[in-house]
Design a binder for these strands. Sequence first.
DNA 1: GGCGTGACTATAC
DNA 2: GGTATAGCCACGC
Length: 118
Amino acid sequence: MEGGDISEVSDPTVRIRHWIAAIPQGSVASYGQIADLAGLPGRARLVGRVLRQAGSDAKLPWHRVLRASGHSAFPADSPVYHEQMQRLRAEGVLDRGGRVDFKRYGWAFDLDAWLWRP
DNA sequence: GGCGTGACTATAC
DNA sequence: GGTATAGCCACGC
């Protein structure tokens, strides 16, 4: 990935999109985690907003973003929910009763280690 | 400018 | 697991 100078981008939505795009295939991240990485702690709702506006933008792996609980942000009976789970399964991310285990599939990106690396 | 809404979260029972 | 509560803040009305 190339996140070296992204922290200097002023537009928060650009940073958010950057980090969402950086989620590796087969991994998932929470809204709060993306907000933290974008330098916007406590702004998880903004991440959701950006994602909603991106909407059909296939460039962003929106399906890899879940709630902190491991659940999808969508109602379990909605079409978009099923599409999300189908996309995740296609990457090897399995859910248990609609819940994804962050211990197993959570993106283990460590921002501190990244910032402090030599 | 006030107010409700929302692809959210941490904390406390 | 659930429910309640309090933060969060861009946006539309």
